[in-house]
Design a protein around this nucleic acid. Structure first.
Length: 263
DNA sequence: ATGGTAGACCCTCTA
C-alpha cells in the first residue's frame, strides 16, 4: 500500500499535474497540503473519476489540507485539537480498515513561522506543541499511525543545500528542530531517513532565484511513523522528477510503500 | 540594487 504526501500549492492551479501524478504513481492514500480553496471549490469530480474518496478541510485563499483514498475512510477528524480559537485549516486525520486492524493517517500543514521574532513564530511553536500532545494521545491506541505532511522543518544540516542560508530561518532554528525532536522522541521515525543514508535529499525548491536548476533545495516534507507503522515500511521515494513538470508545485510528493493489505 | 516567482484574489498577503 502506497501512502504519499504532497504540498501542491493550490489544487485548482495544479489539477492537471495532480491527475497526471495519481495516474503515474497510483497511491492508495494521498495527503495534500496548501489546497488554497474552500471545500466547495475543491475539484473533487476529477479525482472521484479516478476512484478516490475525497476528504477536505479547506480555507479561503490560504492553507487547506485533504486526504484522497482508494479505501473509504471509517472516520475523519478535521482540525488539530487543542485550540478552539485557531481557525487555520492545517490538519485532517483519517482512519482506514486494513487486514488485521486499522491504520490512522494525518495530513499536516505545519505553520511556516517566518518572520521569526513575531507572532508567526510563536504560533508555529505552539502548533508543534499541540501536535505533540495530540500525537502522544494517538500513540496510546497502538495503531500504525502516519503523520504525513509539510512540516516546514529542516531536521538536520544535511537536509538543506547551504546551512548558512537557513540557520536563522524559522524552518531550522534550534527551537523548531527541538520541537521536531520531541515528536521523534515520543516514538516517531522519519520514514525517508529510516530507508536512506545521510546523503542530501530535498522535497522543496523555491520558485525564486533559480533554486531548482541549481538544486538548491530543502527537505521539509516528511512521513513520520509510529513503531507499528515503521514495522510495515518497505521503501520510500521522493518524486523529484515532478518538480521538472510544467507549472510545478514548489514541493514534490514523498511516497511510502507499506506492507498493509486492504481489509 | 535588497533582487527573484507563484497562487489566490480585491490588491496585498503568504510562502
Amino acid at each position: 500500500m502506497k501512502i504519499a504526501t504532497w504540498n501542491i500549492n493550490g489544487v485548482r492551479a495544479r489539477i492537471d499535474a495532480l491527475v497526471a501524478w495519481l495516474k503515474e504513481s497510483n497511491p492508495d492514500i494521498a495527503c495534500l497540503q496548501e489546497i488554497k480553496t474552500v471545500d466547495e471549490g475543491f475539484p473533487r469530480a476529477e479525482l472521484e473519476a479516478l476512484g478516490y474518496h475525497v476528504e477536505t478541510h479547506g480555507q479561503k485563499g490560504f492553507n487547506g489540507v485533504a486526504i484522497l483514498s482508494r479505501l473509504k475512510p471509517d472516520e475523519i477528524i478535521r482540525g488539530l485539537p487543542g485550540d478552539d480559537e485557531d481557525l487555520q485549516s492545517r490538519f485532517i486525520e483519517g482512519v482506514f480498515s486494513v487486514k488485521g486492524g486499522a491504520i490512522r493517517v494525518c495530513s499536516i500543514y505545519l505553520p511556516n513561522g517566518n518572520p521569526t521574532g513575531t507572532e508567526k513564530y510563536s504560533y508555529k511553536l505552539a502548533w508543534m506543541e499541540r501536535l505533540r500532545v495530540h500525537a502522544e494521545a494517538r500513540l496510546r491506541l497502538e495503531e500504525p499511525l502516519i503523520l504525513a505532511g509539510d512540516y516546514n522543518v529542516i531536521p538536520e544540516p544535511h537536509d538543506c543545500w547551504d546551512v548558512k542560508i537557513w540557520e536563522n530561518d524559522a524552518l531550522f532554528l534550534p527551537p523548531t528542530r527541538n520541537a521536531f525532536r520531541k515528536l521523534e522522541n515520543l516514538g516517531f521515525t522519519d520514514a525517508v531517513r529510516a530507508t536512506n543514508d545521510t546523503t542530501p535529499l530535498y522535497t522543496f525548491w523555491d520558485y525564486q532565484a533559480g533554486c531548482w536548476p541549481k538544486n538548491f533545495g530543502i527537505r521539509i516534507d516528511h512521513l513520520m511513523l509510529s513503531a507499528e507503522a515503521l514495522d510495515k515500511i518497505v521503501s520510500t521515494s521522493i518524486e523529484k522528477h515532478v518538480r521538472a513538470w510544467e507549472k510545478p508545485s514548489d514541493h514534490v510528493p514523498v511516497i511510502g510503500e507499506f506492507a498493509f493489505e486492504a481489509a
